[in-house]
Design a protein around this nucleic acid. Structure first.
Lengths: 109, 109
DNA sequence: TGTTTATACAAGTTTACACTTATATAATTT
DNA sequence: AAATTATATAAGTGTAAACTTGTATAAACA
């Protein structure tokens, strides 16, 4: 599943938003998502699997808990893809200004 | 179809990339996409429809030609959504610097 | 040790969507 | 006017994916 397909699902986007605030136990995520979307624990778990498999999230096992955290690399790739469209909405800046400001990886880090 | 779902398809992403370079006739797009993806004219036309309907593209009729152009607003929305994740890859900047550089619509323009 | 808690996985169902071929519509050319 | 070109639409099909219910696994607790 490509990054955009993963992001296509509102539940997964919400999970990523939650993870943007920090690590979270699977159960907590399940709770939040059930509140908002009314789906089962199994369904949430499957979304978490997609996020793991696609590279958007990492898991740490702590006894019988699973601690999920965000892996932002694919989101950054999305951000990079958007570069070619930015001229449509960003004011034109000097090259240096832009580079400084956007923290562009001039050297692929 | 939400913005991310629209972007989930590689053919549609490619069409948007083409449109980022400027307006294009349907037929030209069809040609390019057929080269790259080997799908029929009908399939490309359907993708163009999705792009129209979802708000990613506008069409101008010129005799029997359809001239497609990019509507970047939804892409900007995606960009805005990414804001909450940027701290994961962007160096921390002063607030003013950031605002200047990213062309933030502090005043909804 | 038996029950509960935390989580994942399996199997089945439904629906959406990315295609295909075939056809429609309208402008253009011969 | 007939044939061709440019494009869209219609109808049908296969597949993927988002769910469901039910079960497995492993740790925690009583």
């Amino acid at each position: 599943m490509n990054a955009f397909d993963v992001l296509g699902d509102p539940v997964r986007r919400r999970i990523l938003e939650l993870l943007a605030e920090g690590e979270r136990r699977s159960g907590d995520i399940v709770e939040d998502i059930q509140q908002e979307f009314g789906i089962t624990q199994a369904a949430v778990s499957q979304h978490l699997r997609v996020l793991r498999d696609s590279g958007f999230a990492n898991v740490k096992i702590d006894k019988q808990r699973r601690i999920y955290s965000l892996d932002a690399r694919l989101l950054q790739e999305v951000d990079d893809w958007l570069d070619r469209f930015r001229s449509f909405w960003e004011p034109k800046l000097g090259a240096l200004e832009t580079e400084i400001a956007r923290g562009k990886k001039t050297r692929k880090d």
